[in-house]
C-alpha cells in the first residue's frame, strides 16, 4: 500500500510536469485542445494525489501506529501540492482562465519534485507530535500557503502578461480582485495556522510563543500580508503594486517553509561548534 502510494506520487509528478507544459502550449499557441487536456490531466492528477494520501494514511494503520499523513516535510509537501492543485482548479472553474495554470501548476510540480527527493518512509510519531492540534495546524497552514501560492501565480501572470498597462480592463480588474481574494483566504488560514500551532506548542511545551526562527518567520509573513491588506484598504493600492506585494509575501512563505530549515540552522551552527 505504501509502495503503491509512492508510485502514484511519481506518476502524478510527471503528470504535473506534462500539465505545466500543456498549459504553456495553450497560452503560447492559443489552442483549446491543449488547455482542455491540461485541465483534464490536472484533475486526474488531483484525484490520484488524493488516493495516494489516503493510501499512505491507511498504510500507517497497517504498520500499527496509524496517524494522519501530515507529520513531516515529505508529507506536508505532498499536501501542499494537493491544496495548490485544488485551489487552482476551483479558480479555473470559476473564472475559466486557464492561463493561471501556466504559473500555478508548475508550483505543484516543484513541490512534488522536492518531495520525491526526500525519504518517503512512514515513521511512527514522536510523543510530542501526537496531537490533533498539530494536524489542524499543518492543514490550515498548508491551505493558507496554497492560497498565497495561487495568489502569487496570479500576480506573476498579471505582471508577465502586462495587465497593469490596461489596469481598468475587465480582465485586469478580475485578476486584481482574485489576487486580493486569494490573499484574504490565505491570510485567514495562516492566522488559523499560527493559532492552532500556538495551541499545540502550549500543550506540548507549556508556551504558546517562544520566538523561535520558524515562528518569527510565520509572524513576518503574517505582518507582510496584513500590511498588504491595509495598503489596499487605505491607500487604494491595486494592480501592479498588489501583485508585487503578493509576490514578496509568497517569498516570505517560501522562506518560512524552506529557508528557515536550510539556511538559519546553518547560521546557528557556529554556536554548536559545527561551523
Amino acid at each position: 500500500m505504501e509502495a503503491l502510494s509512492n508510485q502514484i506520487l511519481v506518476v502524478v509528478t510527471f503528470a504535473y510536469l506534462a500539465a505545466s507544459v500543456l498549459y504553456l502550449c495553450h497560452w503560447v499557441l492559443k489552442a483549446d485542445l491543449f488547455g482542455w487536456t491540461a485541465s483534464v490531466v490536472t484533475w486526474v492528477g488531483l484525484a490520484a494525489l488524493t488516493a495516494s494520501i489516503v493510501l499512505r494514511w491507511l498504510a500507517s494503520y497497517q504498520l500499527g501506529f496509524g496517524h494522519a499523513p501530515f507529520s513531516n516535510l515529505f508529507e506536508s509537501l505532498v499536501f501542499f501540492a494537493w491544496t495548490l492543485a485544488l485551489i487552482y482548479l476551483i479558480i479555473e472553474l470559476v473564472t475559466k482562465l486557464k492561463i493561471i495554470g501556466v504559473f500555478a501548476v508548475p508550483l505543484a510540480f516543484l513541490a512534488l519534485l522536492y518531495a520525491l527527493s526526500l525519504d518517503p518512509a512512514i515513521k511512527p510519531l514522536l510523543p510530542a507530535l501526537k496531537s490533533n492540534w498539530l494536524i489542524a495546524h499543518v492543514i490550515t497552514c498548508f491551505l493558507g500557503y496554497a492560497g498565497f501560492g495561487v495568489s502569487a501565480a496570479l500576480s506573476l501572470m498579471y505582471l508577465v502578461t502586462g495587465q497593469h498597462r490596461q489596469a481598468s480592463s475587465p480582465r485586469a480588474l478580475l485578476l486584481d480582485d482574485l489576487i486580493y481574494q486569494t490573499v484574504v483566504v490565505g491570510f485567514i488560514l495562516l492566522t488559523a495556522g499560527i493559532v492552532t500551532g500556538s495551541i499545540w506548542a502550549n500543550s506540548a511545551w507549556g508556551t504558546y510563543w517562544s520566538w523561535d526562527p520558524k515562528e518569527v518567520w510565520s509572524l513576518i509573513t503574517w505582518l507582510v500580508y496584513a500590511a498588504l491588506l491595509h495598503s489596499r484598504f487605505m491607500r487604494g493600492w491595486q494592480g501592479k503594486r498588489i501583485a508585487i506585494f503578493s509576490l514578496v509575501g509568497f517569498g516570505c512563505v517560501l522562506f518560512t517553509y524552506f529557508g528557515v530549515n536550510l539556511l538559519l540552522s546553518g547560521l546557528h551552527s557556529y554556536a554548536t561548534g559545527k561551523g
Binding site: V216, V224, M234, R235, L264
Partner: peptide, 20 residues
C-alpha cells in the same frame, strides 16, 4: 493608517534580525 502600515512592515523587517 499610514503609520500602522509602516509599523507592520517595520515589525516584519526588524524581526528578521532576531532570526539571523
Amino acid at each position: 493608517v499610514k503609520l500602522s502600515f509602516s509599523l507592520l512592515l517595520i515589525l516584519a523587517l526588524t524581526s528578521i534580525a532576531g532570526t539571523l
